[in-house]
Amino acid sequence: MMSIEFSNRLGLISELQLQAALAHFNLGDFIKAEPILFGNFRQNLYLTSTKGEYVLRGVPHTPWQFEHEKFFYKLLFEKTKVPVPLPFLIDYSDDIFGWSYVIMPRIKGLNLSDPKVKNKLTENDLEEISKAMGENLILMQELYWDFPGHYDPKLKSIKKLNKKYQEWIFYQIYYYLDLSIRYSKITHVDILWVDNLLKQGIKAMQYPFKPCFVMQDYKEDNVVLEKSNDCWKVAGIFDLVDAYFGDGETDLSRNMAIYLDKNPNLINAFFRTYAAKRKLRPGFERRFPIYMLKDRLMVWEFVHREKKVWWQGSPSLHEWAERYTSIKLPNI
């Protein structure tokens, strides 16, 4: 039987293999499979059977990626009102595809990664969606933990950071700065700029916080949306591969950076919605550039390593990143 390449990462997959995966979880008979054309890593495909519509996710980044994601999906389901794709069915064996995989329900909704979908939306739609993103971020951050930390596959739970949170954030910034040196030109001026930005915010980073869920890649591309009674809401979230427990303010960064690039008018609606219900701690104006810098360094390192730079010209790191770290925050 003919095999189809759904993405470079997934490789060639046959109908027989997909039927075997469905049968493993008693999910009915195979009807069709479709590629998902969006996303950086292309780990997913749509899968339809006689029992429903699903997403198959394969080729994990680490042996524990799927259990890490399931851990957070389960907590979000139990502790919040955030819509998540459960059951999250993991087959750890590589017998069928040569790699482990997950099958989860396909959540109905619009994915704005699809230009055909986004191009049909009005400016009012986009503004209301940005508000919905703020509302959903608040809901996600109702998931708390006793301490900041990451999922540990040995513990099957959260392991406390081995540093104070402020020290860990600074460590992460210099870690990605160091990685960036391998793939791009980082100047002495760039390093001094980073040093100075951290010095300006070090006192603000001392304010205590209640550790909550941090998705780290929170953006419109990682949710599906629906409109009901002229009201937009997030219908589901996905891709929790980088999730951890930390300072919730961190998750403002990526979505605001994307809005700055594509539609700066949406920053106000998103930020105001969040800040109206999630009280910002003293020193936020100094912490925000630090969290944004961490996010931008992660993006800078990734796009240079993968040769996916999308911006025009050849700005230095600090020239490129300062546009984001100096976003003018709306008055609350």
Results as ranks from 00 to 15, higher is better:
279 K>E: 09
274 Y>S: 02
317 L>S: 06
314 S>V: 15
309 V>L: 11
296 R>G: 00
283 G>V: 04
292 M>A: 09
316 S>R: 07
279 K>H: 13
312 Q>V: 12
289 P>W: 00
302 F>M: 15
299 V>G: 08
317 L>F: 07
273 T>M: 02
294 K>C: 11
317 L>M: 14
296 R>T: 01
280 L>V: 10
272 R>I: 09
304 H>G: 07
282 P>M: 15
295 D>F: 07
300 W>M: 13
295 D>M: 14
296 R>I: 07
305 R>L: 13
304 H>E: 03
312 Q>G: 07
302 F>N: 07
317 L>V: 03
297 L>A: 06
296 R>C: 10
289 P>N: 04
300 W>A: 07
297 L>E: 00
296 R>F: 01
316 S>T: 12
280 L>M: 11
316 S>W: 09
281 R>K: 13
286 R>F: 10
286 R>G: 12
309 V>I: 13
287 R>H: 08
274 Y>L: 10
286 R>K: 14
309 V>G: 09
273 T>H: 01
298 M>I: 14
288 F>Q: 03
296 R>P: 02
279 K>S: 11
311 W>R: 09
276 A>L: 09
312 Q>W: 06
306 E>T: 15
272 R>M: 07
283 G>N: 05
279 K>Q: 11
298 M>F: 04
294 K>Y: 11
293 L>M: 13
284 F>K: 10
289 P>E: 01
302 F>S: 12
279 K>R: 15
307 K>G: 12
304 H>D: 08
300 W>I: 05
315 P>T: 03
273 T>D: 01
278 R>W: 00
303 V>P: 01
290 I>Y: 00
308 K>F: 07
276 A>M: 10
315 P>V: 05
285 E>K: 15
284 F>V: 11
289 P>L: 05
315 P>W: 02
293 L>H: 00
272 R>G: 00
307 K>F: 05
297 L>K: 03
300 W>R: 03
291 Y>C: 05
306 E>S: 14
274 Y>F: 13
290 I>H: 00
292 M>W: 00
294 K>Q: 14
276 A>W: 04
312 Q>R: 12
285 E>Q: 10
273 T>F: 01
288 F>Y: 06
313 G>R: 11
281 R>F: 07
298 M>C: 13
300 W>K: 11
295 D>V: 03
274 Y>T: 00
297 L>C: 08
301 E>D: 10
307 K>M: 13
293 L>G: 02
277 K>Y: 03
272 R>V: 10
282 P>T: 02
284 F>M: 15
305 R>N: 11
281 R>C: 14
292 M>K: 04
306 E>R: 15
317 L>Y: 00
315 P>E: 06
297 L>Q: 04
288 F>G: 01
305 R>I: 09
292 M>S: 08
300 W>V: 04
297 L>G: 01
317 L>D: 00
299 V>K: 03
274 Y>A: 00
276 A>G: 12
296 R>Q: 14
292 M>H: 01
303 V>I: 12
294 K>G: 08
315 P>F: 04
283 G>K: 15
304 H>W: 08
297 L>P: 06
315 P>M: 10
283 G>L: 15
289 P>R: 03
299 V>W: 07
275 A>S: 11
314 S>E: 09
301 E>L: 15
282 P>E: 08
305 R>S: 08
275 A>Y: 01
280 L>T: 01
317 L>W: 01
308 K>L: 14
281 R>M: 13
290 I>W: 02
293 L>F: 05
316 S>F: 05
